[in-house]
Structures are given as C-alpha cells and as structure tokens.
Design a protein around this nucleic acid. Structure first.
Lengths: 193, 193
DNA sequence: TCCTGATCTTTACAGTGTCAAGAAAGGCTC
DNA sequence: GAGCCTTTCTTGACACTGTAAAGATCAGGA
C-alpha cells in the first residue's frame, strides 16, 4: 500500500500509457473513430485490460480529453504570459486558441464534445481547468477595459462574445470550413475593440 | 423508364423515407450514435436495404446533413426576410443561426461535421446551399456597411468575423457550454457595429 | 510458505457496418 | 395473356466493436 496502485504491478502505469496512446491516436483520426481495442493494441495489452482502469470507452476518452484540455489551456496561458500590453495579450490568447484548433483539430473537438464530457458534470480535474480558462479570459478582458478607461460592467457579456468569436473561428478552421489565413484579417476587423 | 427509379417499385420512396427517419433520429441523439440498422428499423425495412440507395452509412448521414442544412438555411433566410433595416436583418440572421443550433443541436453538429461531408468536396446539392448561405451573409454585411457609409473593402473579413462570432456562440450553446440566454447580451455587446 | 488482492488475459455475447447470394415484384417483349 | 429482365428488398454471413464474466499471473504480507 506504499505506492499508488496505478504506478506499480505488472505494467507499471497502464492507465497513463492508455491515455498517452489515446491522445496520440486522436492526433491521427477523429475521436469518434477511436476504438478501445485500438488503444489497447497501441499500448501492447489485451483488449479488455482498459476495463481495470476505466469504466468504459467514454471514460477513457474523457481522460484523454482532460489531458488535451490541459495542453490547450497551457498554450493559452503561455501565449498570454508572453505579452504585457493588454491588447496584445488578448490577441495572443485568441491566436493560441485558434492555433491549437488548427494544429490539433481532433483534440480540440474532443475537448468540447458534450457526449464525452457533459458540461454540467465535468471531472474534478476538468472543472479546475475550465475555471482557470474562464478566469484567464475574464482577466484579459477586464485588464483591457481598465486600460482603456471603459466601463467594466459589461465585461462578462464581452468575454462571452469574444469567446464566441474565437471559438467559432477555431471550430471553423479546425473543421476545414475556413482557411487559417482568414483568421488574422477577421480578428483584426473585429477583435481590436 | 418513365419514372425516377427512386419513386417507384416496392416501397415507393425508400430513399426519402430513410432520410426522413435519419433526420428524425438525429433529433433524439447524436449522429455519431446513429446506426444504419436503427434507421432501417425505423423505416420498417431490413438492415441491408439502405445499401440499394446509399453507398454506405456515411452517405446516408451526408444526405441527412444536406436536408438539415436546407432547413438551417431556410431559417436564416426567412429571419432576414422579415426585416427591412440592415441592422435588424443582421441581428435576425445571428439569432436564427444560434436558434437553430439551440433547437437542433445534433442536426447543427451534423451539418458542420467534416468527417461526413468534407468541406473540400461537398455534394452538388450541398454546394448550392453553402453558396446561398455565404451570399446571404455577405449581402447583409455589405448592406449594413453601405447604410452606415463605411468602406466596403473589409466586408469579407468582417463577414468572416461575424460568422465566427455567431458560429461560436451557436456551437457553445448547442454543446451546452453556454446558456442560451447569454447569447443576447453577448451579441448586443458586440454585434452592433 | 501460502494467502490475498490487484492486474491482466481469455472467452463469450450482442450489436454494428458491409458484402454476397437469393427471393419478390414491377415493367418489358412477344 | 406468358415469359423474362431489371430493380428492389431480404437473408445470411463475416469481421469488428464494446462489454462482461471467469480464469491466470504476479506482488506483497501473514
């Protein structure tokens, strides 16, 4: 009982290895096509082994989605941290958001898939990431409004509008409906308050 | 040879009935969970019958997506047609867009799913609908810019930005990440140019 | 040493997409 | 009308999937 059960015994850390494999496979094709058996094969383990670490296929995909959400948030945070000017910070956040969706379209889809992680009942780990992301955006918006001497009262509505704009462009680019190079001009025409 | 092969013989119009059934089932659950056999059962026909009208499962879902796209476009067109003021027309278009996603989230997802209808290679029927939708938005944006005496040169970039905003809010609402009543304030804070 | 419990494998079952072969029924020629 | 052909649909089969139950394997404690 001295070690965590997920980091010992036969495999070492099968749970982590399965999430690794799932995330790697999601880079190649849509999560809808990802089969549990395919993940088990990639991890070099029998097709039923995942059931000792996840309750079902959805549970594994949910864990993979949590991992992707972590990467997604980290990309936004480091982009924002690289700038001081409030305007530049918000633009950098938008670019990181769309950039992640363009570079990892299936992972982006996985993160927001309501079938896998019902927004009303996220995992505790996921809830933390969601809160951090919301606070990151809210802080950027408030900073910008303050820097411009504008009323901060509409910050929540404005944050939602900006989230919508950036999320929409990300989804359209990730799904191939809009070329990536159309995003810059669009944001330029709109994101500068 | 005097009638179309799809509107005669045994069933009458099995192809249409299958699309009807698929669209109806998509109202109830995600297209990812829609099985061909389930559609065949709903149409009262054997599990292999659809293969005489569609090349595979994706082909049927694509046809269902075309139907949904038609409804989606019709909702936007009638919303726009109900107003004269350029500002009101654009707002009505956005509301119809988000309203469709909120009322038919799975159909909305089906319409934009790149796995089912690759944006680079849409069906001829779909291509017509896409063009009409793009022209509808472009016309609304240009009308508004003209009415305000603004430069029309940035209309395409602005149209993409507005598309992104509305599509993002629609996707977030449709996926349950944002409540529908958050959309009004967000659009108000942003869509009025 | 043997036991206990966690981990993994084997086996099995229902459901799926898809294909091939056969039955049924409309429309043709005679 | 009879006979045939083509299109439509059904039946049966295969490989694959998710999932559950039962057995094997192995680490650590008595």
């Amino acid at each position: 009982m001295s070690r965590s059960p997920s980091t010992s015994y036969h495999h070492g850390d099968l749970r982590g290895a399965l999430v690794d494999a799932a995330v790697a496979l999601v880079e190649e094709h849509s999560p809808a096509r990802l089969s549990l058996r395919e993940v088990a094969r990639a991890a070099g383990v029998s097709h039923a082994a995942p059931y000792h670490h996840f309750s079902d296929r959805g549970d594994l995909l949910k864990a993979a989605g949590d991992r992707c959400m972590g990467d997604f948030l980290a990309a936004q945070e480091s982009a924002v941290a690289a700038h001081d000017d409030p305007d530049a910070r918000l633009v950098a956040l938008g670019e990181a958001y769309v950039g992640y969706a363009a570079a990892h379209p299936h992972a982006f889809a996985l993160v927001f898939d309501p079938e896998l992680c019902p927004p009303g009942d996220p995992s505790p780990e996921r809830a933390v990431l969601i809160t951090r992301n919301e606070e990151l955006l809210a802080a950027c918006v408030v900073d910008l409004l303050v820097a411009r001497g504008r009323d901060v009262g509409h910050a929540p509505a404005l944050a939602n509008a900006l989230w919508g704009t950036v999320h929409g462009l990300a989804a359209l680019v990730g799904d191939g409906h809009l070329p990536l190079d159309a995003v810059g001009p669009a944001l330029e025409a709109r994101l500068t308050l």
